[in-house]
Design a protein around this nucleic acid. Structure first.
Lengths: 247, 247
DNA sequence: ACCGGTAGACTGGTCTGACCAGTAAACCAG
DNA sequence: CTGGTTTACTGGTCAGACCAGTCTACCGGT
């Protein structure tokens, strides 16, 4: 015979649930406005602090945004990966997630994204990739920040070409965290120009494979490029963790 | 010449940042207690409502937990994927993330996890997998809930064998969301027993491949099993999205 | 007819102070 | 040593207040 722990449900929590439900069910759509805090407090029959704590939770989840003075009330936002990204950031910082884990994961994601993109890409996607690659070419002379930005755009375009939002989002998150961890080292690299030229060549090769719908090749190139570019920053005794993915 | 939008920083937000920083930097470890709200309000020199809104945000991020009456104060929690899972849940419900996206993503994750697990597994991991498989065998006669539980344990053991927390966490999240979407259909399937026996056979085959360190084979089996088991629930016109991963 | 400024009625952000129910630890009677 | 009781806290909630900001509708000047 087993009992479950009893835990009282807080008032603000029930407010959160009701508003969440209204959003998920579609009764409230992105762009819509919630009633003002003072109005909500009479509708829910709770104090304003309770309403505010509920709104704070929803705001932390990136579901609403409120600006002081706006008489239209808090705005309901479209679902965005921002909250997911923050959660993952926190995990990566607080937990024992090392660069080798991140890189391994990125090789998995990018490898699969390239494979899928090669098979599923449309002409529009190819045009987008061409544009991103052109931006990288001009970025070489404009400085590392510009180049890095274009590089990110290229990878995001590939993720989008798969048509899978999960790949887009998690790819974006992992890339962000990886960059954050090693951008210092990249900034102070000796031969940034040579580095950029190497990357550029890699990307051109990848794009050719995607144009040819050769998913396996694109995937292999992408993973190899990741290994070549980043393995130096991984402690030597952990590099073997990445090798199985290159087979 | 470009200007950036100016946005005032809320007081509660700065409180959140300070506490977050203390946790991330390790000055405060999981299990530690924060000062009471009344104590925090003098330390930060803000009102209690401000302190409470900050704590609410941290609580929504699963970083702290507070119980009324506990004189030791709010507890700092260990980093957990719970917040990440909620974020992803929200995205999956609110955004246009379909079963095909989830399944595609799961095939990517599970496929890679099996590949890595096969190469990196230790004897301990194998023992764990054996135990999980045994639990599945007895689960067949105990009912679908038991079996499903053991199945999840098996997949989690494989993810752990890779040694990569990111694979463990994201795998767990995606499995959870997939299950939530189709558990109704599974519950009401006609021949659950036959279903369970098929899955069991799949898992035994996979475990053999992992024991043989044949990563490529294990990966292929895992992805094929996912397709075989779940493709029926994916709209027919979207099934082609999954095929490139089976090559 | 248009325009710029302004007044007012709101908004959210914050603070204060109060009350309640809950917890834990110290205390105390058996 | 045990079981209840007291006590001093805790967090949860509410009420009321003030401020700075923003929108809107109005109004006077051109």
């Amino acid at each position: 015979m087993e009992f479950e722990p009893v835990s009282p449900v807080r008032a603000y929590q029930r407010v959160v649930e009701q508003i969440e439900e209204a959003v998920f069910s579609g009764r409230i759509k992105p762009g819509d406005r919630l009633p003002s805090e003072r109005e909500l407090m009479v509708q829910f029959d709770v104090g304003r602090s309770t309403v505010r704590e509920a709104l704070r939770v929803l705001q932390a989840a990136e579901m609403i945004r409120s600006r002081p003075g706006d008489p239209r009330g808090p705005e309901v936002l479209a679902a965005s990966p921002a909250a997911l990204r923050r959660s993952m950031h926190r995990l990566a910082r607080a937990d024992h997630i090392g660069l080798s884990d991140l890189l391994q994961f990125r090789m998995v994601l990018d490898g699969s994204a390239h494979l899928l993109a090669a098979q599923l890409r449309t002409e529009d996607h190819l045009a987008e990739l061409d544009a991103a690659l052109a931006a990288m070419r001009t970025g070489v002379s404009k400085g590392f920040a510009e180049f890095s930005h274009a590089d990110v755009a290229f990878h995001e375009a590939i993720a989008r070409a798969t048509g899978n939002p999960l790949l887009v989002i998690s790819g974006e998150v992992v890339r962000g965290v990886v960059l954050e961890l090693i951008e210092d080292k990249l900034e102070h690299a000796d031969d940034r120009t040579a580095l950029m030229r190497t990357w550029l060549a890699h990307h051109e090769e990848v794009l050719d494979a995607i144009r040819d719908s050769d998913g396996a090749h694109a995937s292999r190139l992408a993973k190899q490029a990741l290994y070549d570019n980043y393995a130096d920053y991984v402690p030597e005794e952990q590099r073997h963790l990445l090798l199985p993915l290159l087979a």
